[in-house]
């Protein structure tokens, strides 16, 4: 078989006559430098917003079905809490915690997870897209991949869980007799938002892991949904080893345990100082570093499919 005959370019350049180049429209709009100047994050947020808006618009065409599924979503998640309160009709305290105290844990972590799930919940479906190669089509669009994956099939009905979580949290704060200080007031929103950010980072890391381990959605879910189930219970009922793990390795303890203990004026079972409760935003920020590195590595290793 003859090696590649070296007529490369010659046959080609002949076809590229100067003509069409002049008649081409000037491309004043897709200034390639523009996205750079905005920065990747802003560009990602913008793309995220566009896709989310599109999905919301398309769900809103069926308004009743949307309302029903949102209410249903809230109701189902609320059943969780009903189960816990039924348990309290038999016992007065659990691990030394009263029902309103448990409700504080439950409501805050439910709201945090709900928020992360609303904003990034579909990242766990990336495994299927990696396996069937349909990630290809997202990779050729001018929006960072994570934004597209997170916004894919955005489901506003997941707001149900957030509302339910905030409702239970509100009830807890109202029933508890907290010695309110400015710091404690500030800590409540900080707790919910940083908790959501920590869960979001775990979701990103889980999605990244799926590039390596085909179908790891379950691993991801065990850290997020499973983690939240754990965080509903007082840390005092768990073994110290587990507490160390969720404080220093996968820092779920910063989602609500540490801030809630501070609000309640209780000591941390691991003996961390009170100001550790305020570290949640920092922790959220720190966990995003390995998560986003893992994500990048994952995307680089993406190999598409043979057909």
């Amino acid at each position: 078989m003859a090696e590649a005959t070296g007529t490369a370019g010659t046959a080609g350049t002949a076809a590229a006559t100067a003509g069409p180049a002049e008649t081409r429209p000037a491309r004043e709009f897709t200034d390639p430098e523009a996205p750079r100047a905005h920065g990747r994050v802003l560009e990602g947020l913008r793309g995220y917003g566009l896709i989310v808006a599109m999905w919301i618009r398309s769900t809103m065409t069926y308004r009743t079905s949307f309302v029903l599924s949102t209410v249903g979503n809230a109701a189902i998640t609320l059943l969780d809490f009903v189960a816990i309160s039924i348990m309290f009709s038999h016992v007065d305290v659990l691990g030394g915690f009263t029902l309103p105290e448990i409700a504080l844990l439950y409501g805050s972590c439910s709201a945090s997870l709900g928020l992360a799930d609303l904003l990034l919940g579909n990242t766990d479906r990336i495994g299927a897209r990696i396996r069937d190669g349909s990630l290809d089509t997202m990779l050729v669009r001018p929006v960072p991949l994570l934004a597209q994956v997170a916004a894919d099939r955005f489901a506003l009905r997941r707001l149900g869980r957030v509302v339910q979580g905030l409702g239970v949290l509100g009830w807890a704060l109202w029933s508890l007799e907290v010695d309110w200080t400015a710091g404690k007031v500030l800590l409540v929103p900080v707790m919910v938002l940083s908790g959501a950010a920590i869960f979001a980072a775990v979701m990103v890391a889980g999605a990244a892991f799926q590039f390596v381990a085909g179908d790891a959605a379950e691993v991801q879910n065990s850290f997020t949904y499973g983690g939240c189930t754990m965080l509903q219970y007082p840390p005092t009922v768990f073994a110290t080893e587990l507490l160390r793990g969720v404080t220093f390795i996968v820092p779920l303890a910063f989602v609500n345990w540490l801030p809630a203990l501070y609000l309640l004026g209780r000591p941390d079972p691991l003996g961390l100082p009170g100001w550790a409760a305020f570290l949640s935003p920092l922790v959220a920020f720190v966990v995003f570093v390995p998560a986003s590195l893992a994500w990048r590595a994952g995307v680089r290793s993406y190999r598409s499919t043979g057909s």
Binding site: P32, P35, L139, V140
Partner: peptide, 20 residues
Amino acid sequence: ARERVRLAHRIGVVFGQRTT
């Protein structure tokens, strides 16, 4: 591979086997 998002503005892709 390094500047995929920037490149996306300059290219169009059609996969016969898969819709974008």
